[in-house]
Design a protein around this nucleic acid. Sequence first.
DNA 1: CATGAATGAGGATTCATTCAT
DNA 2: TATGAATGAATCCTCATTCAT
Lengths: 182, 182, 182, 182
Amino acid sequence: MRLFSEAGFHATPTSRIAKLSGVATGTLFHHFASKEALINELYIYVKRRLREVLRHELDAALDFCTQLLRLWCVDVRWFLGHYDEFIFMRQYCDSHLIDARTKELLYQDFEPFIELFRAAIISGLLKNDHLEFVLSHYVANVQHCTFYMYQFPDALSDARLLHFFEIYYGGIAIQPTKENDQ
Amino acid sequence: MRLFSEAGFHATPTSRIAKLSGVATGTLFHHFASKEALINELYIYVKRRLREVLRHELDAALDFCTQLLRLWCVDVRWFLGHYDEFIFMRQYCDSHLIDARTKELLYQDFEPFIELFRAAIISGLLKNDHLEFVLSHYVANVQHCTFYMYQFPDALSDARLLHFFEIYYGGIAIQPTKENDQ
Amino acid sequence: MRLFSEAGFHATPTSRIAKLSGVATGTLFHHFASKEALINELYIYVKRRLREVLRHELDAALDFCTQLLRLWCVDVRWFLGHYDEFIFMRQYCDSHLIDARTKELLYQDFEPFIELFRAAIISGLLKNDHLEFVLSHYVANVQHCTFYMYQFPDALSDARLLHFFEIYYGGIAIQPTKENDQ
Amino acid sequence: MRLFSEAGFHATPTSRIAKLSGVATGTLFHHFASKEALINELYIYVKRRLREVLRHELDAALDFCTQLLRLWCVDVRWFLGHYDEFIFMRQYCDSHLIDARTKELLYQDFEPFIELFRAAIISGLLKNDHLEFVLSHYVANVQHCTFYMYQFPDALSDARLLHFFEIYYGGIAIQPTKENDQ
DNA sequence: CATGAATGAGGATTCATTCAT
DNA sequence: TATGAATGAATCCTCATTCAT
C-alpha cells in the first residue's frame, strides 16, 4: 500500500514489497498469481475497508442531506487518517491496472450508497439527474476536499468539514442546506 | 503524449516513443537529457498550449463570473478536444516525475489566471477566501466535468457546459449566477 | 579475470563475463552490486591468493636478504604461472576503478610483508630509507622481471631468478648479496 | 591527452575530446579515421616529443654512465613536468590499442638510444647482456622513479635524481658509479 | 574543411517470475 | 508452505560514426 502510493506500481519492485512485508520474494508469488493480481486484491481490500467504515453512516430514518453530510465527513476523515490509501485509490481508480472484473465487483459492493443517490434524484433534490454524474461529482469533491485539507492541515474541526460540504452540496442541490444542525 | 497518457510513464519504453515519433532512440536523448526531462518538457509544453488558448478569455472589462464561465467553457472544450493531454495532465500534475522547478515555472505562467481568483476573493465574491482552495477547487471541477462529458458524450452544447458551470459556481459563490445570458 | 586482463574493464561486457562464467547476466548482479564492485572483489580475491602463497616464505629466523630472495622467487613464479592475474594486477593497481576502501583493506593484509621492509630500513640495510619507496621499488622490479621472463621464456631456472634478484637487490642494498647459497 | 590519461580510452567519449578541443565532433573524424587512429597518432606524437627532448643528451664523447645519467635525469624531469603524458604512456605502451605498426615505427625512432645500450653491453659494462632486458629494465625504473617522485614531491634536486639513478645503475652495472661528479 | 543532428547497435542494470531445496 | 538464488527479457542510456548542409 505504502509503496504503491508513494512510488507507483511500476517503480515498486516486488522485491521491495517482499522485504517490507518481511517475507521472501517467492512467498509473494505463493499468495498472489502476479504483481497485477496483488494490486487488484489490494484495491479490493482497501475499498472494502472504506465501505465498512461508511456503512454505519447510512440511516434510512434520516433525510438525504443529513446522510450525505455524515458520509462526507466520515469519508474525508478516513482518507485523512489513511492518506496512503487515499493516494493509492486516487491513482488507480481509473488505471488499466485495475481490471474490469474488480471494478464490477466493487460497484456491487457500493450498491447501498449508490441507492442513496438514486433515491435523491428520484425525489428531485438535485440539479442533475444523471446518476453517473452525481456519483462521480461526489467522489471528485470528496477527493478534492481531502487533498486540500491534507495540503493545508488545520484543526480538523467539524466546522471546516461542514463548510466544504456546503460548497459541494450548495452546487448540486436545488435547495441548499438551510439548517446546519449537526 | 499519447503513449504517456495511455500506458503511463514507466510502461512506455523510450524505444516506443522514438518509433512513434519516427526517429531513432538516440535522437530522443540528443534532444532530451533523460526520460524524466522529456516528460517535464512535455508537461510544460502542454500547459503552455492550454494557457495560450485560455489567455484570450481574460477580459478585465467583464465581471468575474462572466470571465470564469468563459474560462470554464474553453477549458473543458479544449480538454475534450485534446483528451490525451487531459489524461496526461490529470495523471502527472501531482506526480513526483514532474519536478519542483517545472511546477514553479508553470505557476508563474498562470499568474494572470490566479490573479483573477485573487481579485474575486478580495471582492468578497466567494464562500472560501483561501486562494489555494479556490484554485484547486476550480481545477478539480473542470477535470470532473471534462471526465464526465467524455465518458457520456452528448451534444457538446453551450447549455450543458453552462449547467455544469452553475453546479460548480453555485457552490463556491456567495451570490449564485443570476443572469445566465451568455 | 581473463577477460579483464585481456581486453580491459570497459571493453569487457558483463554479458561476456556471464557467458564465460556459465551463468545468466542477472545472476552476476545478484552476487555483485555492479561491474565496479565485481572488479574490486576480484582484485581483493587475487591479492589475497597471492598473499597466501607468499605468506609461507616469511621466516623470522632468516635474515632479510634471504627472506626477500625467497619472496622474490615465489612472487615471480606465481605471476608467471598466473599471467592473467599478473596483467590484471598491473593494469588495475593504480586505476580509479579500484576504490580507496579496497586499497586500504589490502594494505592491511600485506602488513607482515611491509613489516619485513620496515625492519630492514631500521637495520640500515638499504640505500633508501623511505618505506614507500622501498616497497614500490620492489613491486616495480618484480613486475618488470615477470614481464620480461614471460616475453622471453627460457628455462625457468633458479639461476635466472637469482640473477635478476641480484640486479634488483644490488641496487637497493648497501651491502650486496655476498653468499647466494639458496 | 589529459582525458585519455585521466579516464582512459573507453571512458573518454569522442564528444568530450571534441568539446575540450573546441571543435565539433564531426571535425575530429575529418582529421582522424577513427578513435583508435587518434590514440595511435597521439601516442606517436608524445613519444616523438620525448625523443626530441632526450636527443640532446646523447653525446658520443661522454662515457656510457654519464650519458645514461643525463638521459635518466631529463627523462624523469620531462615526465614529472608532463604527468598526463606519463600516465598516458604508462597506460598504453602495452595496450592492444596501440597497434603493431605504431610500435615498430617508434622502435626505429629510438634507435640512437637503443644503440647506446647495445654498445654498453658489447663493452661488457652490464651484468645482463640481453638488449631487451636492459632496455625494459631502464624503462621500468625510470617509470617507477617518476611515479614515486610524483607521489612524494619534494625539492626536485639533482641530488635526489642522482640517488635514484645510483640505485638503478648500481643494480645493473658491473662497476657501480664511482665518481658522482655531476 | 567544419559542423552537429541523427543514427542504432551495444552495454549496464533491473525485475517479475520460476523452481529446487 | 516458505525460501531466495537464478533467470534473461526488457529498459534506459551512451557513443562512435555518418552525412547533409
